[in-house]
Amino acid sequence: MADKCDLCLLGLIILSSLLTGISGVDDHVFISSGEYVRLPCNNALSDCKSKTAWNYNSFRRSAAVELITGGIKNKDTERHERLSLESDCSLNIKNVTEEDYGLYICQQWIYVNGKDQRQGPDARVYLHVLHVSVSPSSSSSSSSSSSSSSSQTGISPGRSVTLSCQLYLYTGFSCDDLVSYEGVELLWVNQAGVDLKTDSRYQILSSSDQYHCIIITLTTTLLNEDNNREWRCQLTHRNQLKTSVRYTVKYSGEKTVLEEPHNVSNTKVYQYH
């Protein structure tokens, strides 16, 4: 029994170290796809334009990508046009996509004795992206490049629709630990904020895979009264709302639009201590 307790304690210590990070405090930013996000650099020096470097790590890449070097954007990166560096060394990303999730590292460099030297600890920011997709898809569907919205035509009463809400989350620990110890949760709710699991007309299923730490799908058959009805996928951490995506049903040849609610602060940054 003592051995089992020792193993449990060791597991909690390891989890705590992963949440805390090498520098003592890591920033975790939750954002919905299509939005604008600011990633803070907590080790900033006075001259960010000449001394700052931002690197990006993802499970989908074998090596880190240099986004900013010496305060200058690297033009050979695919997200070059969507990046900008602020005077406080923070990194801005516009029109966030699910491909942007990952670990961003801000480093500061100074010139000493004829060569560059890294100054202070790295500032680590984990960017987690919430994204919703709709099926079955339509050949006439389209998407917007300037906002987190997609549209689908051909939707009508009597059709079955499935909304898949996916959290692209970069961590050094398992999804089970994230849910159990940190209380991260995805929910489908109606306009009043009521959990749709309480309504038998909706099938709600949760799962995970290699890239999506949490997936929650909503499946239902559309009714006549569903026109202009709104469903929201919301992400909570320890029962506090972090970000959400809403889906509004449109009939009579109108487009079905997936859009961000305006009353949610999507650039909320919180820290694991």
Score class of each variant (00 low, 15 high):
residue 125 V to Y: 13
residue 131 H to L: 02
residue 149 S to G: 14
residue 176 D to L: 12
residue 156 S to C: 03
residue 155 I to N: 03
residue 136 P to W: 04
residue 106 C to Y: 08
residue 122 D to S: 15
residue 173 F to Y: 14
residue 164 S to T: 15
residue 147 S to T: 13
residue 182 E to D: 07
residue 158 G to W: 04
residue 164 S to P: 02
residue 170 Y to K: 02
residue 159 R to I: 03
residue 121 P to T: 13
residue 170 Y to D: 05
residue 139 S to C: 05
residue 113 N to S: 12
residue 178 L to C: 07
residue 162 T to W: 01
residue 183 G to L: 12
residue 117 Q to K: 13
residue 148 S to F: 11
residue 173 F to H: 09
residue 171 T to P: 00
residue 138 S to Y: 03
residue 183 G to K: 10
residue 150 S to Y: 08
residue 148 S to H: 08
residue 176 D to P: 00
residue 161 V to L: 15
residue 127 L to N: 02
residue 112 V to M: 06
residue 144 S to Q: 10
residue 169 L to A: 11
residue 140 S to V: 05
residue 104 Y to L: 12
residue 144 S to F: 12
residue 184 V to F: 15
residue 130 L to N: 02
residue 166 Q to P: 00
residue 122 D to C: 06
residue 159 R to C: 03
residue 119 Q to Y: 13
residue 174 S to Y: 01
residue 149 S to P: 02
residue 112 V to A: 07
residue 113 N to Y: 07
residue 161 V to W: 02
residue 125 V to H: 12
residue 136 P to M: 07
residue 103 L to E: 12
residue 129 V to Y: 06
residue 148 S to W: 05
residue 161 V to Q: 13
residue 110 I to C: 04
residue 152 Q to Y: 10
residue 120 G to L: 13
residue 154 G to K: 04
residue 104 Y to H: 12
residue 103 L to Q: 11
residue 109 W to H: 09
residue 149 S to N: 11
residue 118 R to N: 07
residue 172 G to K: 01
residue 137 S to V: 09
residue 183 G to Y: 09
residue 119 Q to D: 13
residue 108 Q to D: 03
residue 118 R to V: 09
residue 182 E to N: 08
residue 183 G to V: 10
residue 160 S to Q: 11
residue 127 L to F: 03
residue 138 S to N: 13
residue 113 N to A: 11
residue 171 T to Y: 00
residue 144 S to N: 15
residue 141 S to Q: 10
residue 118 R to T: 05
residue 107 Q to P: 01
residue 169 L to K: 01
residue 164 S to N: 13
residue 103 L to M: 10
residue 167 L to I: 05
residue 124 R to M: 12
